[in-house]
């Protein structure tokens, strides 16, 4: 398990991390969310010793992380970094070798990942000749080449088209399912909600929300209620307590209500009139939780 404890880091006047505490377990995928400048990249870089914290620890299974351990981690930096003129297969092999793989194993793994990403015939091409999406795939392959125990990916989905996003998501799911700890940052909240069991939201250098997506949603103080009825519905809502807001668009009404509010009476009343067209009662989305958390 990866654990960041009470980490502080300031760059001059700018506080990047202000007591950040975070954990990522094996076999789970952790979505790491936060507005721009909240400290995501700084926290991720601390895992690889790329930034020296002012205070706080990073541990893996309770031990401080040394170079040997780092070689069993995979990292995809926010700013993509590959040698533009080096051949793709050579490059992946080289990065595998730097993590201690034998030439044969690294070469084989490079071929397998290129094949997996549909780049089997591009191994001999310079990275700079590949499209943006394909370069991103190679960057992911560079993080996966040595079959790492932990994957730390900074914005792996940014700039990808839906097909590439699907491939990337598939690989990450598979990695988590095979027992790896996967942590990635993203601004695509729907995608994170879809992919991750766990999320952590960072704001101003501090983790403000952390936990399983399911239970976070359950624990949220509000619910969304969407009702579509023929005719005037205002009478229906009068009986309902705990309404925070009503947003109406013609016959369709979007209500935000308190979590404990009983809506069965409303459903029955709406059905009795025979004019109910749509009724949905949902927990807030991850986007709602996010907006609430970083307010």
């Amino acid at each position: 398990m990866l654990s960041i404890q009470d980490m502080h880091k300031a760059f001059g006047e700018v506080v990047a991390l202000d007591g950040c505490t975070l954990a990522a377990a094996r076999g789970t995928m952790l979505g790491f969310l936060g507005p721009n400048g909240a400290g995501k990249t700084t926290a991720m870089r601390s895992v690889f010793g790329l930034m020296r914290p002012d205070s706080g620890d990073v541990t893996w299974d309770g031990h401080p992380i040394g170079l040997e351990q780092r070689r069993r981690f995979g990292y995809m930096p926010e700013q993509r970094g590959l040698y533009p003129r080096m051949k793709t297969h050579d490059q992946l092999t080289y990065l595998g070798r730097l993590r201690g793989m034998t030439a044969t194993a690294a070469g084989l793994s490079a071929s397998q990942w290129l094949e997996r990403f549909g780049l089997g015939d591009r191994g001999g091409d310079a990275v700079e000749t590949l499209s943006h999406g394909n370069q991103q795939r190679v960057q992911l392959a560079a993080a996966l080449i040595h079959d790492p125990e932990l994957l730390v990916l900074d914005e792996p989905f940014s700039g990808l088209d839906p097909i590439a996003t699907e491939t990337m998501a598939g690989v990450l799911r598979e990695q988590a399912a095979s027992g790896k700890a996967v942590i990635f940052s993203s601004h695509q909240l729907d995608l994170v909600e879809d992919l991750c069991e766990e999320v952590a939201i960072i704001n101003k250098g501090l983790i403000v929300v952390e936990g399983a997506v399911r239970s976070l949603k359950d624990a949220a103080p509000i619910r969304h209620l969407e009702v579509e009825v023929d005719g005037d519905a205002s009478a229906l809502f009068e009986s309902l307590s705990g309404i925070r807001s009503i947003d109406s668009d013609g016959n369709r009404h979007h209500l935000i209500i308190e979590a404990g509010t009983d809506v069965r009476g409303l459903l029955v009343a709406a059905q009795e009139g025979g004019r109910l067209r749509h009724f949905s009662y949902t927990a807030p989305s991850l986007s709602d939780l996010f907006r609430e958390a970083v307010k």
């Binding site: 870089r45 690889f48 010793g49 790329l50 170079l67 780092r70 070689r71 981690f73 990292y75 930096p77 700013q79 993509r80 970094g81 590959l82 040698y83 533009p84 990065l95 730097l98 993590r99 560079a142």
Partner: peptide
């Protein structure tokens, strides 16, 4: 060059 194309981040995550 290694700094410009940021490959140094990847390299320094596994070497000194």
């Amino acid at each position: 060059e290694e700094k410009t194309n940021r490959v140094v981040e990847v390299l320094l995550s596994s070497i000194k």
